[in-house]
Design a protein around this nucleic acid. Structure first.
Lengths: 192, 192, 192, 192
DNA sequence: GATGAATGAGCTTTCATTCAT
DNA sequence: TATGAATGAAAGCTCATTCAT
């Protein structure tokens, strides 16, 4: 009888938002961003099309929110001891955590790679992404420099290409890419 | 004055087809498959929408043709001495030729990666692709086995992930990925 | 502490209604009826969407109420000595009061003119309006007849067209239409 | 069998465009711009919704084209001997031609007045309109100055208000506004 | 009384594809 | 062969209105 409190509304909003994002991630990841209509998402989430727009301003905003949330979560995970310096064991841990994240959020990473190569989506998201990546990149450069590599920038290219390439292959064909073994192998390569 | 022969017609047809495919590749690669309409392609190619359908029976068929042609060309390039055995120098050459192809057909590779991560397109193309890749894969397995790697399948995963990851990063940000140096570095890694 | 009386509730209700109408008038006048959503009005008025429907049963009813209230107020102002006869000085006064009203309620008149030319709104409102205008019209006819005009109906058309035309131009471009001077000029025309 | 020539296509385009504009004018004028959907226009014109967009980029562009065309036609009519000076008989003729145009294109004028008071439409159209009106306005100012009016700008306000007011009342209630008589009366007023 | 979540019909617009000429 | 007019299904999105709390 008595009206809902602000907190109650807040709860409803949060849970609905999460629900929509979960469904959308699932569908986008499975069928591709353009192949999934707002209608489908709404139906799958058991709500009306209109309600979607109560929570997300547009389809673009929805995907942006999903991607950003994923990146933030990952960066949180990967954040070392915040001294801005990447120690050797931190790099090893970085590799481990990355693979861990891929194992746990396979769908997310599939979507992420699919979007990162879509020109219009990339334009939407790239600025924010590269901003987030900057500190990590600079720490890595320092790391490879300290480790005595001749061309640290190049080595970072090899490293990031290797990780990204393997992850991407994995998310599209998990059965052929034994993640645990790959992780061990990569750590082996860099842990010398 | 004399009526054109069948061959002449065929030639015209082929060159027109190629032209359409070139334009389409350019546009798809730049803006993404869904963002480019048949209308745009036709206009850019200087023909009418209707005529497009004289050459390709659908938009899907157009993209399929483009992708298949690219793969065929690449496999032609990479085909070693056809004895089904990959010698060490052939692997090194494979790396070189792959990077060479990427340098020459950057647009194609950009499109290729964009499409390979689109679930519906992958479904369209995948069967053909994996068929084509099979002999290469088996040769590689043999190669890594012969070279004494403990887990040849795993090593192939590392190898293909590394190559694919670097290429993909390159086609989206060529200025940050010095292809020549990367090629040299990778050859260095595997040439020992 | 003591429970509010019915009158107090009624007062609150009335003042809230007025507030909503003021906000709505402002917004409708500025952006047009269809461009303003119930949501906007509610937000601007500091209440919830749902509560809006406690005071007005629909958007149409809201605009109707606003318009009717405006007309009633104006007719109140313009009502002469209630003898049903329009004396010369009363006509002059009518002109003056009309311009006075326009000066004071520019927003209202802007909205009024915008709505009066909207076919569906006109259908909604017209019956009531013409009912209200009837006595005024008949008085005017008598007036122009008495003043010796050959065709009183025609003269009324000229008169009302002139007033309406000027007001309308004024509310849309006040800076170009010096209302005081125009009022004087019109009075001059009819005051001979 | 042989394909259509460019001229044939041109003809089809022109006639279709006109057909759509005619239907749209009719419907907009009768029911209002926002009340008429593209669907309705297409249905009434006996074509598909999609075809509409082959001829007009958007609903806004459609209404703009209709309005501009009408204004251009009218200004063509009203253009005197192009010496930039408005003679007395030209003003009289201007009045006549205006009323003539209203008689012939009642629907157009109804739409015109309905749109000119819609804030969002006005913003769309106003710049072009006021540009078109400038030369006419300056000629009129000169005219009233030459005729010895104390305040030419004011007189122009009265004049344009009178004409606009009468026309607008006429288009919404033709039966009550005898246009011929009104025209004569107005000419009488200014022809002294 | 008061809230805002929820609905659903309806809107404008896009675009691969067909087809008469 | 060649054109572009024509179609129609489906997309993203808006918003007056209802309703559980």
């Amino acid at each position: 009888m008595s009206p809902r409190t602000t907190e109650q509304f807040e709860e409803i909003r949060e849970s609905r938002k999460k629900q929509i994002m979960d469904v959308a991630l699932e569908l986008f990841s499975e069928h591709g961003f353009h192949q999934v209509s707002i209608n489908q998402i709404a139906k799958e989430a058991g709500i009306s099309k209109g309600l979607m727009y109560n929570y997300f301003e547009s389809k673009d905003e929805l995907i942006k929110t999903i991607i950003y949330k994923g990146i933030d979560e990952m960066l949180d995970n990967l954040d070392p001891d915040h001294d801005g310096i990447l120690e050797h064991h931190e790099l090893i841990n970085y590799i481990h955590l990355t693979f861990e994240s891929v194992r746990k959020n396979q769908k997310y990473w599939k979507l992420y790679f699919a979007l990162m190569v879509q020109p219009p989506v990339m334009k939407l998201i790239e600025p924010h992404i590269s901003e987030l990546k900057k500190p990590l990149a600079s720490m890595m450069l320092n790391y490879f420099e300290k480790r005595g590599y001749e061309d640290p920038a190049l080595e970072m290219g090899v490293f990031s290409g290797l990780i990204a390439g393997i992850i991407q292959k994995y998310v599209y064909a998990p059965e052929y890419f034994p993640l645990e073994k790959l992780e061990k192998r990569i750590i082996e390569i860099y842990d010398k």
